[in-house]
Simulated assay, not measured.
Amino acid sequence: MSQGVPPPFDPSRPPIIEGFVPYVRAREEGVKEKFLRKTQENPIVPIGCLGTAGVLTYGLICFKRGNTQQSQIMMRARILAQGFTLVALLVGVAATAFKKRK
């Protein structure tokens, strides 16, 4: 081959790009590891989810027992718990976005 012509593309090897260093992943993150990492980053969201599930469950139990007044109160409390969880999620996303900027 002459000196001015680059070698043909070899699909078995990655292309060589001047100034580029490929990123090597340490290892794939599993579901459990990702859940634990996300819980540590924003622990309020899982607390809100558990609270929502607890209020919903208690409200359904009250409904099944015929205590409709308590069931209505629990369904309203569920809405508040969902709102709390949503706000916690949004605050966590905003905090992560601002942390990456710095």
Rank of each mutant, 00 (worst) to 15 (best):
Ser2Thr: 08
Ser2Ala: 09
Gln3His: 07
Val5Pro: 00
Val5Gln: 05
Val5Asp: 05
Pro7Lys: 09
Pro8Leu: 13
Phe9Tyr: 13
Asp10Asn: 15
Ser12Ala: 15
Pro14Asp: 08
Pro14Glu: 07
Ile16Tyr: 05
Ile16Leu: 12
Ile17Pro: 00
Glu18Gly: 00
Glu18Arg: 14
Glu18Asn: 07
Val21Leu: 08
Pro22Tyr: 03
Pro22Ser: 08
Pro22Phe: 04
Tyr23Gly: 00
Tyr23Gln: 03
Tyr23Ala: 04
Val24Glu: 01
Arg27Cys: 02
Glu28Leu: 13
Glu28Tyr: 11
Glu28Ser: 14
Glu29Asn: 01
Glu29Trp: 07
Glu29Tyr: 05
Glu29Pro: 00
Glu29Ala: 12
Val31Tyr: 11
Val31Thr: 09
Lys32Cys: 02
Lys32Met: 12
Glu33Val: 06
Glu33Ser: 14
Phe35Pro: 00
Phe35Gln: 07
Leu36Gly: 00
Arg37Cys: 02
Arg37Gln: 12
Arg37Ala: 15
Lys38Thr: 11
Lys38Glu: 15
Lys38Asn: 12
Thr39Asp: 04
Gln40Trp: 08
Gln40Phe: 08
Val45Trp: 06
Pro46Asp: 07
Pro46Phe: 14
Ile47Phe: 14
Gly48Lys: 07
Cys49Gln: 11
Cys49Leu: 15
Leu50Ile: 14
Gly51Arg: 12
Thr57Gly: 05
Tyr58Val: 01
Tyr58Leu: 03
Tyr58Ile: 02
Leu60Gly: 02
Ile61Met: 04
Ile61Phe: 08
Ile61Asn: 01
Ile61Gln: 02
Phe63Lys: 03
Phe63Leu: 08
Lys64Asn: 04
Gly66Asn: 06
Asn67Gln: 10
Asn67Val: 09
Gln70Phe: 03
Gln72Met: 11
Gln72His: 08
Ile73Tyr: 04
Met74Glu: 01
Met74Arg: 00
Arg76Thr: 13
Arg76Gly: 14
Arg76Tyr: 07
Arg76Ala: 13
Arg76Pro: 00
Ala77Tyr: 01
Ile79Lys: 11
Ile79Gly: 03
Leu80Glu: 11
Leu80Lys: 06
Ala81Thr: 12
Ala81Trp: 01
Ala81Ser: 13
Ala81Pro: 01
Gln82Ser: 09
Gly83Ser: 09
Phe84Asp: 03
Phe84Trp: 06
Leu86Thr: 10
Ala88Asp: 05
Leu89Gly: 03
Leu89Tyr: 09
Val91Glu: 04
Ala94Met: 06
Ala94Thr: 04
Ala95Pro: 00
Thr96Ala: 14
Thr96His: 05
Ala97Tyr: 05
Ala97Asp: 01
Ala97Ser: 06
Phe98Val: 15
Phe98Gln: 05
Phe98Leu: 13
Lys99Met: 04
Lys99Ser: 12
Lys99Arg: 11
Lys99Val: 12
Lys100His: 08
Arg101Ile: 14
Lys102Glu: 04
